[in-house]
Design a protein around this nucleic acid. Structure first.
Lengths: 341, 341
DNA sequence: CTGAAAGCGCTTACAG
DNA sequence: CTGAAAGCGCTTACAG
């Protein structure tokens, strides 16, 4: 089976190839009658623009890129990525825009991927996840003039538009909620402190404790793996003055934390309250269900896609936008702190 | 910033553009000295092949396609897709091959996507998921001569190579295990009966019951949603002669089933044994942990990618291969059936 | 309103 | 061993 080309249409319709091109692209320069004939023939023989020819011509690649810097084994467990993708797709599909996915090892590999995509003319723009302090990806993308939207920020994104998730506000909400429940010794299990949203949340937590006159909150690091997050919770619960409430920066670490607490005979929420950043089926499956800070991840993906299209089209300065704020969903894992007798 | 082209290299190296092309592609026709000089210049100015130009030339698109026919809202919950993608990527990345993702509504839309990808020259091949009886996608892909690997089969895949997951064997294993535990009334909660693997598993379950002289197993349908799978389990547990063991065709339906059973005061595994096809973090999070039929999904993705490359290269007839068989992982959700007194 | 021509970046027969 | 030329499918100035 041979792909039909613009030449095949020209032949059948009895016009020149340029006339066909004008007709197909809605350009002036052909009569209405010719235009209709051309469109009819194109539809009849199932013509589609050859994406490579268009891209070569200087047009769009017709795809955007998403580099995932995640250990492969965690991609399945963590709902975030796939939810984001489903949100992106909701905007991409109607525009027949493709999504190029690449799993990368580290920031260096991610940058190499951006350079390659750019040089190979493979994508028209990219979505950047997990902004870090002094993120080297930003300047690279700026230098390449590769349109991009950062999920994270709003500071540290250079000239790139961003969607920022109001992490500080989310953390403030939950810390004040816990304080109101009578908790005084707060702790949090945080991901990579290089990530800007972790820093923002951490600062907000410290600030609430300071304002409320609570002791300095304890920070423990953990990646998303089962072993690491179990270890983090175990360490917190083994402290002489152990926290009465723990905030987790991801649903994966939170559910594991709950498991560990129950294994150690710590009652939730009687002895210990737990909160998860991000809500997912995982949070609702465990017993007690986890109190969570929920936000609409597919919605954010869709928003990011729209902003990226604006950046690619150069239609107005997109600038940065806040994402929908976190909603605190109190469930069974949080409760009033009663002083031990 | 301007993308360097082959012409830039030719100019700097003082040779013709064709010499550059030969040198870069390891073709004979240039002296070793020239070749080295060309490669050095290319590296120095950061040249990369323009993917569109190569694709237009009749070469590879440099990407494969994956159409996901899943309700968007479930993509995040279900670990399968992302695990498969991580496995695909493990093979794609080293070859600098891209992955084109597209979420589609239904089979018709999926076929339209294949036609579009083919006509637009966007992908060199595709991975097909969830094979159905008389699957219309097969003949379309055959007609288009678009290389494809089917995950599913081995029957009903036409001339396309496939990886088949030995679903019948997996179901036989688990049914015999349950029978050995003393269970006589088995039931299963199945996905769309149009899907070939559901049919295969169902047949295997019926066969084991027949051979063992057990009553005909009860079948209830459920999609992956929380409401539907809860409903399915509720219906089974409300039966006058309710089953003592339920097999779920996905981890999502299984964990929901467990929740429902516990809500209804049915003790697991004392009164009811539960088994999940597919293992995931979900199965290990609930209490009791779910007995599962595990298989290496990323491994299967990698295998599929390798087979697809073979099909694209036309290197040998790839044919169909079995995937690694399911492994039964007995956990807390299954136990010996004791006749009620 | 329409056609002939050039060119995007690359590869590959075809001459020298 | 190397260069000049054609062509992949499309778009867009440029002539008629």
């Amino acid at each position: 089976m041979k792909r039909p080309t613009i030449g095949d249409i020209a032949e059948r319709a009895g016009v020149s190839r340029s006339a066909v091109s004008f007709a197909l692209n809605g350009q002036p320069g052909v009569s209405d009658e010719t235009r209709e004939r051309v469109l009819a023939v194109a539809a009849e023989i199932g013509w589609r623009p050859h994406s490579a020819a268009r891209a070569l011509r200087g047009g769009r690649a017709g795809a955007i890129g998403l580099a995932l810097q995640r250990p492969a084994r965690l991609l399945g467990d963590e709902p975030f990525t796939m939810e984001l993708i489903s949100g992106l797709e909701a905007e991409l599909s109607p525009r027949s825009c493709g999504l190029n996915l690449q799993v990368v090892e580290d920031t260096e590999a991610e940058i190499a991927t951006y350079r390659r995509w750019w040089a190979e003319h493979r994508v028209d723009g990219v979505i950047v996840l997990n902004l870090c302090a002094d993120d080297p990806r930003i300047t690279v993308l700026e230098d390449l003039h590769l349109p991009a939207v950062v999920i994270g920020g709003p500071t540290g994104t250079g000239t790139l538009p961003s969607i920022w998730s109001q992490d500080a506000a989310g953390m403030t909400d939950v810390a004040e909620y816990l304080a109101a429940l009578g908790h005084r010794r707060l702790a949090h299990v945080a991901g990579d402190p290089a990530m800007a949203h972790i820093v923002d949340r951490s600062a907000a937590l410290h600030e609430v404790c300071r304002l409320r006159g609570l002791p300095e909150p304890v920070t423990v690091r953990a990646d998303y793996s089962e072993t690491d997050s179990a270890q983090a919770t175990r360490r917190l619960l083994a402290m002489p003055e152990r926290p009465t409430a723990i905030i987790y920066h991801s649903d994966l670490t939170a559910v594991t934390g709950l498991e560990v607490a129950l294994e150690m005979g710590v009652r939730v929420p009687d002895d210990l309250s737990l909160v998860s950043f991000n809500d997912s089926r995982l949070c609702r499956l465990v017993n007690p269900k986890l109190t969570a800070l929920a936000h609409d991840i597919p919605g954010r993906g869709a928003q990011a896609a729209r902003m990226l299209f604006a950046a690619i089209d150069g239609s107005g300065e997109p600038g940065s936008q806040p994402a929908e704020p976190y909603r605190l969903l109190p469930r069974g894992s949080t409760g009033v702190h009663r002083a031990p007798h």
